[in-house]
Write a protein that binds this DNA or RNA. Structure first.
Lengths: 202, 202, 202, 202
DNA sequence: GATGAATGAGGATTCATTCAT
DNA sequence: TATGAATGAATCCTCATTCAT
C-alpha cells in the first residue's frame, strides 16, 4: 500500500539513461560497453532501454548529443557580446574556457568520437556543426575583429584558429592517455596564448 | 595458376599477419576488428594466427609495437648529431619530421591507443617509453641546448616541449575525425614553429 | 498448437537444465558433451544456459551436486535410529540400499568423477564430504556398535568398512563397462554381506 | 657431418609413441589429451604420429592394448601350473598379484576405459576378452578346483569370482579419486581373502 | 621416413535485441 | 509503461588432421 518514496517521472527517463550510458561509455568505450550495465546504472530494466531507444547506436548518439548541446554557446555568446579588448578577452575568458575543457565531459566525447567516429560519420558531422566549426569560427572571427580594429596584425593565425586550440587538444589526449605523467595543462595553454598574442600583436 | 595452398613462410608470417591486422584495426578499431578478416587479408587461415600469437590482444600489441619500433630513432639521432644551429634545425628537419607524422601509420596507432589505452596500460607505457618521452626529451633538450648556446632565451617553452608538437597532435586528430574538412596541417605546424622561434629567440 | 516460444519459468529452469545436462554428461562424458545438446534437451536456447550458469564447468558441478544431495541421508538416519539388531539391519536395510545404488544416477556420477575428478578436486572433496566419508563412517560406526554390544567380535572389518561396499563399487563399474555381460550384482552384494557377517559374528 | 649420437630405430617408434601417449592420457584423460603433447613427449613431430596411426582414437586403442598385453598371462600360467594347495596359492601369489594392480598401469587403463568405454565398445571387448574374462575364469576355475579337491565347500563364491577382486577394484578407484585419504589397500585385499577362505573352507 | 606449417570445422561464450507477462 | 527471461547470431579460440618440403 505504501506509495513509492518517489516515482520517477517518465519525462526524465531518457536523460537518466543517457547519463548512465555516458558513464559506461566513458569507462569502457562504445564497443565494450554493455547495455546491461547501462540499465543497471540507470536503475531500470534492460527492456526499458528499448522503449526509448531503438538500438545501442541510438543510445550512443543521444549520449554524444546530450553532452554537446549547449556547450559552446556560452563562449559564443561571450565572443559576440564582450566589451573587452581582444587581447584581454583572449587572455581572460577564452583561456579560462579552454582550460576547463580537458577535465570536462567534452574530453570523453572527443575520445569516443576518435574511437568510433569512422563508423558514425553523422555524429562527427553533428559535432563539427555544433561545436568545432562554431568554436573555430568564433575564435577566427574574434581574431579578425582584432585585426580590423588594429589590435592585431595580419598573420597566418587568422586563418588557422586551430593554433589557439591545439594545446587544449593535446591536453585532452594527454589526460586520456598519460594520466600518470604530470603535465601542467593550464600553463601549456597559457603559454600558447602568450606566444600567439606576442606573435599577432600589432 | 591456383595459388599454392601452403606457403610455409615461417619468417614472413608474423609480419604478414601484423600488416593485415594493422589494416583491419585501422578500419574497425580493436573491438570491432574480426580475426577472420585479419586472416583473410593476410591470406592465411584463422588457425594460423594462433600459431604466431596467442590471443587477439597479443596481435594488437604486436601491431602497435611493429609500428612504433624505429620510429623516433632517426629524429633522435639527428638531434644528437646535427651541426645545424638550433633555429635551422627546428625549421628544417624537425618540422619536416613532424609534418610527416599525421599521414603516417603513427596516427593510426595514436587512434588505437586513445580508444584502447585504458584497457592496455602496458601498451601506453610502451608507447610512452619508446616514443613520447624520448621525443619530448629530445625536443626539450634541444631547446635547452639552444638556451645554453645563447641562441634562445629562457622561457616556459623549455619545460613544455609539448607546445612544439601540439599542432602535430591536433593535425592527427583532425585527419582522423574531419577528413572532409580541409586543413593545411603543414602550414599549421610551420606557423607554430614560427611563433615559437619568434617567442624564444634571444 | 505451437509451443510457446517463451516460457518464463525462472524457478524451474536450473533443474530443467541440470537434468538435461545430466543426461548428456551421462552419455558423452564431460569433455565430449556439447552445450548445444544440453540446451536442446532442456528445450531452451544455448544462451539461456548462461543466464543460470556461468560456465560449462559450473553446470557440471551443479549436475554432480544435484545428484548427490540427500542421497545418503536416508541411510544415515536409518543407521542412527534403527531398533534392529546389527545383523538384521545389515542384512536388511543396508543391503537393500547398496543393491539399489548401481542402477541409480549415483553410478553415473561415479563415472563422471572417475573421469574428471583429477581436474575438479573440489567436486571430489564435495563428494567425499557428503557421501563417502559419511557413508563409511556410518557403516564403520554401526559395526563398532555391534562389537560394543557383543554381537560382533573385533576384526579388521571395523577399520575397513570399505569391505562392505567393495562389491557395490565393483557392481557399478561392471554395469558401466560390461553391460553386455550378465552379473548378478544383488547376489554379489548379498554374498559379501554373508561372508562378512560369518566372519565377524561373535 | 657428425653422425647423430644414436639414431632411433624406426621399429621402436610405435612403442615410443604409445608410451608418451599413455603418460598424456593418464594425466589428462582421452578427450583432454593433446596430440601436440604426445608428440613432444615422444620426441617426434606431430606429423609423424600419423605415419604410424591414422587417428587419435587409434593411438588410444594402441595405448590400451599395449598395457593390457602380457598382463594376466603370468598369473594365468601360475594358476595352471602351481603345485601349491589352493589356500596357499590364494593367500600367496594371487593376493600378491592383486595387491600390485592398483599401483600399476592397469589402474590407469581402467580409468580410461571407465571414461571412454561407452564410445569404444571394441576396446572394452578387447579388455574383457584378454583380461577380465580370463582373470575371472582363472580365479573361478581355481576355486572350483579346490572344491573338487575337497579343500573348499560349495558356495556362491565359485560362481562369483568377482568377490575376490572387488576390493582390488575399490582400491583402484580409491587411489584414482581419493589420493589424499589414506587407505591400507593391501590390508583390505588381505582381509577379503581371509574372509573368503574362512567362508569357503571345507 | 620426418617435419612442422597450415588448415578449418567445431565449440564455449557473449550480448544486442525481442517479447510474453 | 515496465520487466527480465529468453533468443541466437556472432566471435574467439582449439586442435585433430593434412601436406608441401
Amino acid at each position: 500500500m505504501a506509495a513509492p518514496r518517489y516515482r520517477r517521472r517518465k519525462e526524465d527517463r531518457p536523460q537518466e539513461i543517457t547519463e548512465a550510458a555516458f558513464s559506461v561509455f566513458a569507462e569502457k568505450g562504445y564497443a565494450s560497453a554493455r547495455l546491461d550495465e547501462v540499465a543497471r546504472r540507470a536503475g531500470v530494466s534492460k527492456g526499458l532501454l528499448y522503449l526509448y531507444f531503438n538500438t545501442k547506436e541510438e543510445i550512443f548518439k543521444a549520449v554524444i548529443k546530450s553532452v554537446v548541446i549547449r556547450r559552446v554557446d556560452a563562449l559564443l555568446d561571450a565572443v559576440d557580446t564582450t566589451e573587452l579588448p581582444s587581447e584581454e578577452f583572449i587572455r581572460g575568458p577564452l583561456l579560462k574556457f579552454m582550460q576547463g575543457v580537458p577535465g570536462s565531459p567534452v574530453a570523453i566525447v572527443i575520445r569516443l568520437l576518435i574511437s568510433e567516429g569512422q563508423r558514425h560519420p553523422d555524429l562527427v558531422d553533428y559535432y563539427w556543426d555544433n561545436v568545432v566549426s562554431k568554436g573555430l569560427a568564433a575564435i577566427g572571427g574574434f581574431i579578425e575583429r582584432g585585426v580590423a580594429r588594429g589590435e592585431f596584425r595580419e598573420t597566418a593565425v587568422s586563418e588557422l584558429p586551430q593554433l589557439v586550440i591545439a594545446p587544449m587538444m593535446l591536453s585532452m589526449i594527454w589526460r586520456i592517455l598519460f594520466t600518470k605523467r604530470s603535465l601542467d595543462t593550464d600553463k601549456l595553454m597559457e603559454t600558447q596564448i602568450e606566444m600567439i598574442l606576442a606573435y599577432i600583436k600589432a
